[in-house]
Amino acid sequence: MNREQVSRVLQQHGAVMVLGVLVIVGSLAFDSFATTGNAASVVVSSSFLAIIAIGMTFVIISGGIDLSVGSLFVLGGVLGAYGSQYGLVVALLLPLAVCGLVGLLQGLVIARTGMAPFIVTLAGLLGVRGLMLAISDEGATTYLVEDRAFAALGQGNVLGLTYPVYITIALSLAAMVLLQRTGFGQNVYAIGGNEQAAALMGVPVVRTKVYVYLMSGLLAGLAGALNAARLSSGVTILGIGMELDVIAAVVIGGTLLTGGAGGITGTVAGVLLLGVIQSLINQVGNLTSAFQQVVSGLFLALVVVAQRLLSKAQRLT
């Protein structure tokens, strides 16, 4: 392998490799780390972030960004809990419909007007947060999950892993096929790689972008609803600022913030990495969870520098 190929492999699979190394180091250093209980807790708590990150991966590969997902996650939770009084179907469809609609609108504005995704979805973040506060009486009303079946969706488990973990796995596999093996996936890469060229090559740029933001909104709403089912209530404070964790996980996973390259495997690894780092810091004991953010931040900075160097190496050789 030459330098270029090594760089490419590191870019695409670096997150998986680092994840492997961290798990091994953690297992050797801490007795309580390599237990099934700990592994399950990392996986379970990561699953919600992962669902949102799948949508974000599509958005970022297409050359965009979606800041509204944190707010949509919270809104999805509140709507899911609220809707659960009318049964499982409403509890799932209500958040999907509202969050999907927000995603669709953002996508239409971005794709049709050419406005910067950063600004459009920042507006979405603020607007959706306001909407969430309005239906929860400024956060004073916490809707409790009434429907047993809905609660079971978030809490039930098979082989020590809750249903949301299996849903995440299924969604990840579907997303991989969608991204790698369909025309839509190819169009997402093409738009992020060179939008002008993609248009000249006959890629439906507007439609593809709209779908990407629609998908991101739907997945954020779904994750919120599942989280509400897990907690048995629509919590109005958890999830604020979550969009940044999601973006960090996607970037750590090797997806280029400039678009055009990346993948679902890396994103899942990126999400797990954040979870493992938190778990390791918990093992150290006397460190607070705030310290976890410092480490995550440093790690993200390292990844970004490494990506810059790697993409340079790939272009030069």
Partner: peptide, 15 residues
């Protein structure tokens, strides 16, 4: 006017 980061085959046959 192609997409530099995509594979040769995908550029050639996109669509």
């Amino acid at each position: 006017n192609l997409v530099p980061m995509m594979s040769v085959a995908r550029n050639l046959l996109l669509g």
